[in-house]
Each structure stands twice: as structure tokens, then as C-alpha cells.
Simulated assay, not measured.
Amino acid sequence: MRLRIFTEPQQGADYDTLLTVAKAAEDLGFDAFFRSDHYLKMGDVSGLPGPTDAWITLAGLARDTSSIRLGTLMTAATFRHPGPLAISVAQVDAMSGGRVEFGLGAGWYEAEHTAYGLPYPTAARERFERYEEQLEIITGLWSTPVGETFDFTGRHYRLADSPALPKPVQSPRPPVLIGGTGPKRTPRLAATYADEYNVPFASVDDTSAAFERTRAAVRAAGRTAPMVYSAAQVVCAGRDDAEVARRAAAIGRDVDELRTNGLTGSAAEIVDRIGSFAEIGAERVYLQILDLSDLDHLEFIASEVAPQLG
């Protein structure tokens, strides 16, 4: 089981804070550092000093770290045009020496679009149409051989005679992540385009059901390439009940609620809970860290939880 650190910078974090957490995660041996891609805070937090752009952040981290993998859960298809996004991700992959993983989602948070002047298709069908076209375009640009051109005509995007450059360092492309629990479209898109399928913030039973839907879609597509299955969960760990309660209070959550909806408690409790996800086929768990000032939390997980997972 690989443990990855997942942050939510829109809740309040500047680049230096994210760099500190990413370097700590790298030094402690975590597999990857991921961040959300949002431009507006959620809930009762200040959000100060304001949002940071996901791919600008990852470009900086690409140069300021050396070994940890870097990615997004999930970049919103509504934020960027697919051609320039393919260029940005390929460039960050090169800047990192081939350490980028590309999570792409349809986009869902209407308020952040309104706040920053981004068009937001209110119909879910249109958002998914755009999302699917972006997946086809981005992966198509990356896979087009050097010296050939890429063309695409869809309902929402058109590319003609694109040189499909630059290419990512990773071949044939950076890993593509698709997530969510949609019953039909998401499994089909994952089977078609993704290297990893992620289920965020769901129970073990609901995660298992989502995995099975995607496995069925993989079989129906006749796909032979392997799929990585993963889960994302908020984590609140501690050496004793007082430490767990302190960390829960710091992120404005109730311990009992976190025990139901996350990875919470002692090292043994968290190892047991992660084991339940491993039993249903999860190979990676993204640990959502909400208090980015608490580096001791990362150290505790690295020293007390990770060694028990094998």
C-alpha cells in the first residue's frame, strides 16, 4: 500500500507552505504529494492568503523537490482549454524529470467559477461532454508521434494541424487519474482513458461498489492495460485520544464523525482501516491533510503507520 499526501490549498496556504509540506513528505518517504485544483475556499475558513494555481504550484515544486511524485486531485476541465493544459502538464513533467501525475475531473463548484469569471455549464451533461473531449484531446496530443499532427473535431473543441508539442518526459504519457462515484459515465471514461481510478471520501462498502463498476467497464471495453485503484480519505491520527481530539479540533471536525468518515485514531486503528481498503483492491491511499502547519502529523504517520502497511 502506497501512502500519498493530499492537500487542499484553497482553504488557506501560500506556495511556501505547500513547499514545506511537500519537502517534508518527500523526506519522510511518502509516495507522492498531490493538491486540489480549486480557486475558492469551502466552509467556515478564511482562505487567506487566497488561492494558488495548481499547475503553477506544481511547476515550482517540480524544481524545488527531487524525488516525490506530484499531481492533482482533480484539475477541473472547466478551468482551462485542453491544448494549453496539455502543454502545461507536459512542461511540468519535464521540469520534474518525469514525476507528474495528471488527475482530471469535470468540474463541479459553480461558486468558484462565478467568483473568478470562469464559464460554468450548468448542465451536467455538457460538463461531461467537455470533460470527455478534453480527455481525448490531451491524451491524443501526448500520444501523437513527433513529426505528425493531431486533429480533433468535437461538439465543444476543434484542433487542426496541431504539432502536438511538447511531449511529456514520461512515455507514453504521465499517468492519468479519473475519480468519482458516478455509476455509468465515470467508469466508462476511466476504462477508456485512465491509468488510475480514485474514489474520494467514501465508505469502504461504497468504494468497493465503485471499484466493481469500473472493473466491469474495463472488462466491457476489452481493456488489457492494468488499472490502479485508489481511495482518498481525510486523516486525523494521534498517539492518544487527546492528540487525536486536538487535531480534529484544529480542522473543525468532530472525532466521532471523523471515525465514520475518515482515517482517525491511533496508528493501529488507521492501519486496520487502511487494511479494509486494501482488501477491496486499493493500492494507494491519498491522505487528506487539512492542517498544513502540523508537520508532526506527517512524521507520526510515516513512522507509526506506514511501516505496518508493508
Rank of each mutant, 00 (worst) to 15 (best):
Q288G: 08
A86K: 13
V285M: 13
L263I: 00
G103S: 10
S266F: 11
V199N: 09
L3F: 11
V235Y: 14
L309C: 10
T214N: 14
E212D: 15
L85P: 07
K41M: 14
R273K: 15
G105E: 06
N198M: 12
T57S: 12
F277I: 03
V21E: 03
D16C: 08
F6D: 02
T65V: 03
T186D: 01
A209D: 10
V255T: 14
Q288M: 11
L141D: 05
A216V: 01
E243S: 13
A164W: 00
I301R: 13
L104D: 03
P183K: 02
G238I: 04
L165M: 15
E133Y: 04
L141I: 10
S143D: 11
G12S: 08
L28D: 01
I251W: 02
R239I: 10
G140W: 10
R239G: 11
A32C: 05
E243R: 13
M227T: 07
P166D: 08
I68H: 03
V176G: 10
F30P: 01
D14S: 02
R80P: 01
Q308I: 00
P145M: 00
G50A: 07
R213Y: 11
D254G: 07
P49H: 04
L85F: 03
G179R: 03
F211K: 14
D296R: 10
E101I: 04
L292T: 01
S276T: 00
E101A: 09
T52K: 14
S303R: 09
D151A: 09
A164V: 00
A62M: 11
L118G: 08
G222M: 03
L258H: 09
T114A: 15
Q170N: 09
Y116N: 08
T122I: 02
N198F: 08
A249E: 02
A90V: 06
L309H: 07
A32R: 09
T181L: 13
A124I: 14
F79L: 13
T114E: 15
A62D: 09
L165C: 07
K23F: 08
T52W: 11
D240C: 12
A245W: 04
